[in-house]
Amino acid sequence: MKGLLRPVLVIVWKDILLELRSRDLVVSVLVFGLLVVVVFNFALNNAPGRAEQLAPGILWSAFAFSAILAMNRAFVRDQEQGGLEGLLISPVSRDAIFLGKALTSLIFMLLIEAALLPVYAVMLDFSALTFTLVLTIFLGTLGFAVVGTLFSAMAVQTRSREIMLPVLFFPVVLPVIIAAVEASTRAVGGETFVGLGRWLPLIGVFDALFLVICPWVFAYVMEE
């Protein structure tokens, strides 16, 4: 376990350092996240009084599309500068590379969501700072990051990679989106942890299952 933790943290720090120096990912995804809310506000005709009903759907549409944008970039920098070969040559297990990449994406997306959530709460008029909503967002984003990292590693090497990632990603994470919207609807409605029912365990099962499967198949995706 100790041998795994250090390389994971080194990979995470490498990507955070790159982001701190370029600042192209977090800022652009933030702006995109705001645009999504504006578009959905008109597309769904968000009249006064309907906001609480529409908010969870808009929230997760924005998070899912932002996740796609962020995940699309996850391996691009490595691919362009030849850093991916460096990673693969270095004496680090494939599990460490996967976990490092997934953890980086999780951190970036949680940061983006933390910045967007208060803005959404004001614009869509719902109370954001409940334990249940924050937990739902964390579990849902974890699922996005795990599955998204695997598919991002595949998509980056295909032709027309920007299209390939959503085509692979959305059908598989659909249960997370369904469960997250249902859980968020209840959380925004003031339900307690118990009141969220089986939706949180469903996301939990999804996360646990793919945390086991994805690192295993990732090793095959990254071979050579």
Binding site: L150, L174, P175, Y220, E223
Partner: peptide, 29 residues
């Protein structure tokens, strides 16, 4: 869309496994 045939086979196999495991979760959700 994969860069070559052997990569395509591996990527497809990954989707074949991940997709199939996902089906029960999709159904229950």
């Amino acid at each position: 869309y994969a860069p070559n045939q052997s990569k395509g086979a591996v990527y497809a196999a990954v989707m074949g496994i991940v997709g199939f495991v996902d089906v029960p979760i999709v159904y229950y959700s």
